[in-house]
Design a protein around this nucleic acid. Structure first.
Length: 861
DNA sequence: CAGTGAGCGAGCTTCCGCTTGACTT
């Protein structure tokens, strides 16, 4: 038996059918080994290494530590079992950098004792598969090196720079070769919008008639000088260049009146043939863009739906950067064209699409209907769900249209004009388009991010006109226009931009969008991607200290270097060493150190704010806020940055967010306010402007909410502290109060927490005195009661127990404590594991030069 | 960012790129 391993289970099923008896086809389900993802993935024997967190031994030739992730272990043992029965192994993963690497990892993990062959194919057809079996090659170690270099570089960048963000911006943030430029693209667009000043300009829209047929034309020139359009204005709102005239509303209205009785005639008619080629079949990025524009799908929904179509055998592989069609696909498209649209829609020769995508690896075909005969959308719709049917139709239309003839027609430009009562020459222009042969447009019209551009695609007919023809004037309307800031990115346009820059891969476009949202860099309003204030702070830090990383050309340069490694003109270790330690330039390691040393957290988190003298916009621990002198006010997180104008800022200062009037305190006559502060929601007795001192405040109980708290609740809260009584021994007053850590009672400088907020009002003097006789202890915790007793630690001879603490469950021997790890649980942990954790903890304490407290028994003996 | 009294066990977060499922309700 010969064992063939491919990457995808669906592919394995198809190929198994083509190879038949004597072959078993299985899948690796993607990569089978990787650097440890998080601390819990690091084997215990490596935990102590200084480089364990990176998973790359930077001191020893960047040797990577590979582990088989938990979710892949089952598949590996399955493959191992099959390999025992096999007398030959074919590694048939994709023929690109990642595929070659998967093949190598499989080889390493399976350590086969039978002959191993590398087998590659680009088309999944019986012929292609049979041919590739008969023409195997060897593993390409250089290509594997290039992948490993890419993998390690990404790890070094991500895991060295992210901690800088934790220190200077916020914990849990992330930086990476791909995500950081993506965030920067969105931030830069928002910056442009923030700096944008709209310009107003006017023209005239005239309705004319020729031979009884009406049409519309726009004022294009006045006294021979071109009338300005949107393109003549800069982002600062000022007109740029010369040779045009800008009209304001009054001028436009005056001109309209002046032209009301003028005679108009056609001045020129210019006809041009019109022709348009179809679009290439889909690759991942264009599918995501079109599904976004036409079906309003997110990138994720598109990929999920395509995955189902692929698994059911309706379409070819959906993660591809190629627009190439196999011969069988071209034949299928052509036969469908002649059947459905007629032979005149079919070009004499098949169209060939060559990809212009940067860094394309082209391991697969374009995305198209599967098989040697395309199933019609109607046939597929009967068998699948709505989303799948719609996406299939889109894929089908695009693939079929790509092999159809060009659309043909004629476009016409008409100029017309007249002279006004005060002798001004006004020229108008209009254009039309007539399609004489629709060609591929019969099957497919591309969607657009810009609705105006989409309109252009429509046919527009004009009446028949010739130079010198007199025209009737039906009406003249002054039209005001305003220039608009560049549109925000959508998922579709961001994917397009990333692809243009060669950043990211087909398998990751959708997850890039998810990542930048999950990390809190970007949020969606409708389909627009809006950067958060955190994103501004992060991008600014990265621009100032890691300019190379967020440079849009970084990935392209890396790809060139990887190509050199793959081609034998470069080597991994010197390359990584230069990148990390530096070589005639500053390496990553020093750049990180310098950033930590020089960057000022306050400056980093301050976002430039136009026009606000003495006004600072900052991203802080509690979200974004504005500061002016001593005054501070929160900025709502869902306020798009470009809407934060000086005017809005003033409004925010005037009415701090979330404030609510609850009513009047009958005793003092003061207004009772509910507010949100640094420590959460609270109520307050308002004070007059000129009053001195501080207003009385009280935190809400946990059971209350800011939106629902009543005046009665507020008055109860504000009645605290309550005097419980006097201590008969010392004479000191005992008070019940609500504080930072919840309800408590206080006697002089001594205090004890209470169990419930209710007790603040019900506790008696006797009960309070009893509470004071007890030792201080944390809320809700009976005096250090262990969750479990594990027995005696063989290392120390002390009893070890599991306790629950602030940071979750931990084990302790009375001297040293150690938190349970992700892979541990209170129920399953045993004494051996606990002893191991304690050993590790002791070692770590010693390494940090801290004292290791011995456990009670060791102390005694 | 409103201001009021503890005592106590840290450890982990993060990258990019391949590929699918899932302890249960």
């Amino acid at each position: 038996m010969k064992l063939v391993i491919v990457e995808s289970p669906a592919k394995a099923r198809t190929i198994a059918g083509y190879l038949g008896e004597g072959f078993v086809v299985e899948s690796s389900i993607g990569h089978v080994r990787d650097l440890p993802r998080s601390a819990s993935d690091i084997p215990a024997s490596y935990k102590g290494e200084s480089w364990a967190r990176l998973g790359v031994d930077t001191e020893n030739d960047f040797k990577p530590l590979y582990v088989v992730p938990g979710d892949k272990k089952k598949q590996i043992s399955k493959l191992k079992k099959l390999l025992k029965e096999a007398d030959e192994l074919y590694l048939a993963t994709d023929e690109d950098r990642e595929g070659e690497s998967i093949a190598w990892h499989l080889y390493e993990v399976l350590s086969p004792r039978v002959p191993v062959k590398r087998m590659v194919f680009h088309e999944i057809t019986p012929d292609a598969i049979r041919q590739s079996v008969s023409e195997p090659r060897d593993l390409d170690r250089r290509l594997v090196d290039a992948q490993e270099t890419r993998r390690i570089l990404d790890r070094l960048v991500g895991y060295e720079i992210s901690p800088v963000l934790w220190r200077l911006v916020q914990p849990r943030l992330s930086a990476g070769r791909v995500q950081s430029p993506a965030v920067r693209i969105v931030v830069e667009r928002e910056r442009e919008r923030m700096q944008f000043h709209s310009a107003e300009y006017w023209d005239l829209e005239g309705t004319f008639s020729a031979a009884g047929e009406a049409f519309v034309a726009t004022l294009s020139a006045l006294d021979g000088v071109r009338v300005a359009t949107g393109k003549d204005f800069g982002a600062d709102g000022a007109a740029k260049g010369s040779g045009h005239v800008v009209l304001d509303g009054a001028e436009a209205a005056a001109l309209a009146a002046d032209l009301a009785d003028s005679d108009f005639a056609v001045r020129s008619v210019e006809r041009k043939p019109y022709s348009r080629k179809p679009y290439a079949p889909f690759r991942t990025s264009t599918l995501q863009q079109e599904a976004g524009r036409k079906l309003r799908f997110t990138a994720q929904r598109t990929m999920r739906t395509a995955q189902r179509l692929y698994e059911s055998g309706y379409i070819t592989y959906m993660r591809t950067d190629s627009t190439a069609l196999s011969e069988a696909a071209v034949a299928a498209a052509r036969s469908q064209i002649s059947q459905m649209y007629g032979a005149e829609y079919m070009p004499s020769k098949p169209r060939v699409y060559t990809s212009k995508v940067k860094n394309a690896q082209e391991a697969h075909e374009a995305i198209r209907p599967a098989g040697d005969e395309f199933r019609t959308p109607e046939a597929v719709a009967r068998q699948v769900e709505a989303d799948e049917a719609r996406l299939y139709e889109l894929i089908w239309m695009r693939a079929v249209a790509s092999q159809m003839r060009d659309a043909k027609g004629e476009s016409v430009q008409v100029r017309l004009g007249g002279v006004s009562a005060s002798d001004r020459d006004a020229e108008f222009a209009t254009s039309g388009k007539v399609i004489s042969f629709p060609g591929f447009l019969r099957a497919y019209v591309e969607g657009s991010d810009d609705p105006d551009a989409e309109l252009e695609d429509q046919e527009r007919r004009l009446p028949a006109m010739a130079e010198g023809d007199p025209l009737g004037l039906e009406r003249l309307d002054p039209k005001g226009h305003a220039t608009k800031p560049p549109a925000r990115y959508t998922e579709a346009s961001l994917v397009k931009r990333l692809e243009e820059l060669g950043i990211g891969r087909p398998s990751t476009y959708a997850s890039i969008i998810s990542t930048i949202q999950d990390r809190g860099y970007v949020w969606k309003k409708g389909s627009a991607l809006i950067p958060t204030f955190t994103a501004f702070a992060t991008v600014r830090l990265l621009e100032q200290h890691f300019g190379d990383l967020v440079d849009y050309g970084f990935t392209a340069r890396m790809e060139q270097d990887l190509d050199e490694i793959a081609g034998g003109d470069g080597e991994m270790v010197p390359y990584l060493s230069a990148f990390y330690f530096g070589n005639g330039h500053t390496g990553l390691l020093d750049t990180v150190a310098e950033a930590l040393d020089k960057a000022d957290a306050r400056a980093v988190n301050t976002i430039p704010f136009e026009g606000g003298d003495g006004l600072e916009l900052r991203s802080g621990r509690y979200g974004p806020y504005l500061q002016r002198g001593e005054e501070r006010v929160s900025v709502p997180e869902d306020l798009p940055p470009d809407e934060l104008t000086l005017e809005v800022a003033e409004e925010l200062f005037a009415a701090p967010s979330g404030d609510r009037e609850l009513g009047t305190d009958p005793e003092s006559g003061r207004t009772v306010m509910a507010k949100t502060g640094r420590y959460g929601p609270y109520v307050q007795l308002a004070m007059e402007e000129d009053e001195k001192g501080k207003p009385k405040t009280a935190s809400l109980f946990k059971s209350m909410e800011l939106d629902t708290v009543t005046l009665e609740d507020a008055l109860t809260l504000l009645s605290l502290p309550r005097v419980v009584g006097d201590d008969p021994e010392s004479g000191e007053e005992i008070q019940a109060l609500n504080g930072r850590y919840g309800p408590y009672i206080k006697k002089g400088t001594d205090s004890r927490s209470l169990e419930t907020e209710e007790q603040l009002f019900t506790i008696t003097l006797e009960e309070a005195l009893h509470v004071f006789t007890q030792p201080k202890r944390r809320r809700g915790q009976s005096a250090s009661a262990p969750l479990r007793e594990l027995g005696i630690d063989p290392d120390t001879g002390c009893a070890v127990v599991v306790k629950d603490g602030r940071f979750g469950p931990y084990v302790t021997d009375g001297g040293v404590n150690a938190s349970l790890r992700k892979e541990d649980s209170v129920e399953r942990i045993d004494i051996d594991r606990a002893a191991q954790l304690l050993r590790e903890r002791r070692a770590k304490l010693e390494a940090q030069g801290k004292k290791v407290k011995p456990c009670p028994k060791a102390q005694n003996g």
